[in-house]
Amino acid sequence: MTGTQVLSSSIAQARKWGGVALLLGVGLGHGPAGWAQSLAPAQAPVQNWSFKGPLGHFDLAAVQRGYAVFAGVCASCHGLTQVHFSDLAGMGLTSEQIAALAEAWQVPDGLDAEGRLKHRKAQPDDALPEPYPNAQAARAANRGAVPPDLSRITQVYPGGPDRVFALLTGYGAPPSHQSGTGSAAGGGLVGGAHPAAVAGGEGGFANPYAIGHRTAMPPPLRDGAVVFTDGTQATAEQEARDVTTFLAWVSNPHADSKRRLGVGVALYLCFLATLLVILKRRIWSHVRK
């Protein structure tokens, strides 16, 4: 299956994984490729995101750090095709900062006289460039899988931000709390029996949060993969946390405005409703039951 296929079928199947895990879990744990065959992605541990819940709001410093991780690491394989540089103003950047940030990217700019693809520096009105010219190129570069676009990833990925974070930090490790079974067998395998599988051979890289516990994406993050300008220590876990926050923001950039609007409107309507209840009682007080 290609990356896109894996991802698309995963949404739809998310609801059924519980059952599949129960069916496949115990019995298959003993085979040579034990935990890889227990198809259900492990339940991702619940994280305490700044943006969680009806009254949450994005930690914009984390969103900005997450952008650095995306630009420095993820963007070499994944696109954010629906996003324009100017949209990034919502992370709390000024238009000068946006222009400077865009300049660091190259976007295709038609063909030159010999028919070769030209590039130029990006401008705020440009969309973020796609990493590959087409799906074939993406597949060729990634052993047959197409890295999915991340514009709405935390919305469409079953398990949401928790699972994105778990996937980024879960390579090779047995899941920290399992929904199905098979973690015991898996732990043993990772320990020594199949180092090739963990390092990524034919079947990809071992990761309990991926479908079939295999992903075509090599472990993308390591300590110090990027340098955070605000002085935050760039541990792999910090990078994963921040890039997940960034992706959640990109998936739903107006969530904060919406929640803020909601609080104001709801308070106003409560007040209005109270007045109307009083008025209604007055008007109806003349009516004998």
Binding site: T4, Q5, S8, S9, I11, A12, Q13, R15, K16, P54, L55, R152, Q155, V156, P158, S251, K258, R259, L261, G262, V263, V265, A266, L269
Partner: peptide, 28 residues
């Protein structure tokens, strides 16, 4: 207002934030 601003998940279908793909039938 409450549904729209605080619990939009009640009325939106996540799968529809994926562009239409004629080559891939969703399982559900």
């Amino acid at each position: 207002t409450m549904v729209m601003c605080f619990w939009p998940g009640l009325i939106t279908e996540p799968a529809n934030y994926r562009p239409a793909n004629p080559l891939h039938t969703p399982a559900d």
